[in-house]
Amino acid sequence: MVTSLPAQVRRPPKAAKPPKSSPARRTGPLGLVGLLALPMTWLVGVYIFSLVMLLVTAFWTTDPFTSKVKPGFTFRNFEQIFQNSAYLSTSLRTLGIALLVTALSILFAVPLGIFMAKIAAPWLRAVLAVAVTLPLWAGYLVKILAMRVTFTEGGFFNWLMAPLGVSGPGFSITTVVLTLTYLWFPYMAIPVYTAIRQIPVNLFDASADMGARSWRTIRTVVLPLIRPAIIAGSIFTFSLSLGDYLAARFVGGTTQMIGSVIASNINLNPPIAAAFSVVPIVFVVVYLVGVRRTGALDRM
């Protein structure tokens, strides 16, 4: 990686732009190679190397008797993902959960953002901004614990619903979706709110002057303008939900997600765990490539 970045590729100063001193002079003793050498050695040498080795392991086999990993080349592990109906349905279930969590987050983040940015008084806006950010710091497991306490058998939710004769979802796939939404919602809410705040007020005036009602203004003015923010938020809600398995483990009852399968195989059968971890990578990469041209990645 480092060797492919020769020092000559520095941009020559352009005449059209305001005069700029040569970048080399401004960075001091470290040139581009000097700046990138250490981080790239780390990211490529540790991280990318590990990802590649994981991919390689996915083609290896496990000795069924000693459960020792044997190098080789087989597509069997990948075939398993498609042939084993439990594995296939787990992949599809996980994808469905991740999409549902993303949809729910958008559904709540947009009204919240509109309220905060355009209706709430300045003091209320400040309070809400803190209120939405705060749970982000409260701790991942703390929040799973909180959902567990809320939805447990003799817990708050069932107590609240008892007078209505309704019993809560207990520990099930519904609770997994709710918990993941609970966990990742701020990642959607904050960029959406920021984007709505940045919409110039006169656009709303123009829309209203031309006779659009509130719903129409939201649909034709607000939504198209906050699309990049929604996409940026969805990268988090989608990717984070896709790889999660502790929510499924602690509030999901018998619900299995891709992560559950990887985690339960990592010690017994590393090649199948490796093959299975390619599934979320493929989902995320397809998603990232899909949204890349929208320019949303530059905002991350």
């Binding site: 540790v46 190397f49 590990s50 080795m53 790889g243 992560g259």
Partner: peptide, 17 residues
């Protein structure tokens, strides 16, 4: 990439290495 990819992938990849 390390935060864009699911944590379990990072974890399993490093565990494997």
């Amino acid at each position: 990439l390390p935060i864009a990819l699911p944590g379990i992938v990072t974890g399993v990849a490093l565990n494997n290495t």
